[in-house]
Simulated scan of single mutants.
Amino acid sequence: MAETGRIRVAKDKAELVKALTSSDGSTGPFQTFADVIVFAAALGAKHKKRVPLGEISKREPSPIGQEHFLTRGYDLIIKLLAIVEEKELAILSVGNEKFENQRLRLFEEYANGGLEILQNEMRGAVDYSERILLVLSSERFQQEQQREFDLRRFLS
Rank of each mutant, 00 (worst) to 15 (best):
A2L: 02
T4Q: 09
I7Y: 03
A10R: 12
D12Q: 14
D12A: 13
D12T: 15
A14H: 08
A14L: 04
V17S: 03
V17T: 04
K18I: 05
A19F: 00
A19L: 05
T21A: 00
S23I: 09
S23Y: 06
D24P: 00
D24Q: 12
S26L: 14
S26C: 08
T27C: 10
G28L: 05
P29V: 01
F30T: 05
Q31H: 13
Q31D: 10
A34W: 00
D35R: 07
V36Y: 08
V36I: 12
V36C: 06
F39P: 13
A40Y: 04
A41D: 07
A41H: 11
A42M: 14
L43E: 11
L43I: 10
A45W: 09
K48E: 13
V51N: 04
P52Y: 02
P52F: 03
L53D: 05
L53R: 02
G54S: 09
G54V: 11
E55Y: 05
S57E: 15
K58T: 15
R59H: 10
P61W: 00
P61Y: 00
P63N: 02
P63E: 03
I64D: 04
H68M: 09
T71M: 10
T71K: 15
R72C: 00
L76I: 06
I78P: 02
I78F: 00
K79N: 11
A82N: 03
A82T: 05
A82E: 04
V84S: 13
V84Q: 15
K87V: 03
K87N: 07
L89W: 10
I91H: 01
L92P: 04
L92F: 05
S93T: 08
S93R: 11
G95N: 04
G95D: 03
N96A: 12
R103T: 00
L106C: 07
L106V: 15
F107H: 01
E108Q: 04
E108R: 00
Y110N: 01
G113M: 00
L115G: 06
L115A: 07
L115F: 09
E116Y: 06
E116I: 06
I117C: 10
L118C: 05
L118D: 03
E121V: 12
E121C: 08
E121G: 05
E121F: 13
M122K: 06
M122D: 08
G124E: 05
D127E: 10
Y128S: 10
S129M: 01
E130T: 13
R131H: 07
L134T: 12
V135M: 15
L136R: 10
E139K: 08
Q143T: 14
Q143N: 11
E144N: 11
Q145F: 13
Q145K: 09
Q145E: 10
Q146H: 08
R147G: 12
R147T: 08
E148Y: 07
F149E: 13
D150G: 00
L151E: 07
R153Y: 02
F154H: 04
F154Q: 01
F154V: 09
L155K: 14
S156R: 15
